[in-house]
């Protein structure tokens, strides 16, 4: 199981802009490093992260091998209504992690 952490404010007012912070476990192996036996360690990265808010895409990021291991990404969004933020990270070797977080809009 891959670990992912998501942080949202506990509750926000309608129309308020809030920060979404995410952290996910991943080596982000560049594909340029040599392993113990001299051969190159194959590339293994997360290529894309998306976030939807009650089904509507609000953020998408393309990552490269220049993103640090255990990628941290933060972005913002406007509180429209209470509901679910859905996150999906996809990458090399069929990597796919999905996670959701609840948001309460007062």
């Amino acid at each position: 199981m891959t670990n992912a952490l998501i942080r949202l404010p506990r509750s926000v007012k309608k129309g308020e802009v809030f920060e979404v912070k995410t952290l996910i476990q991943h080596p982000m192996e560049t594909g340029f490093r040599a392993g113990t036996n001299g051969t190159t360690i194959p590339r293994d990265i997360i290529e894309e992260m998306i976030c939807t808010y009650n089904g509507v895409e609000i953020f998408r990021m393309k990552l490269s091998s220049a993103i640090a291991a255990n990628p941290y990404v933060s972005f913002h969004t406007v509180a429209t209504e209470s509901g679910t933020l859905y996150f999906r990270w996809t990458g090399d070797n069929g990597f796919k992690v999905e996670e959701t977080a609840r948001i309460t809009v007062a």
């Binding site: 670990n3 952290l23 476990q25 933060s74």
Partner: peptide
């Protein structure tokens, strides 16, 4: 200082 930016927290979760 920020538990959300500190990758060590992924281990704490485990």
């Amino acid at each position: 200082d920020d538990d959300m930016a500190n990758p060590a927290m992924l281990w704490v979760l485990d």
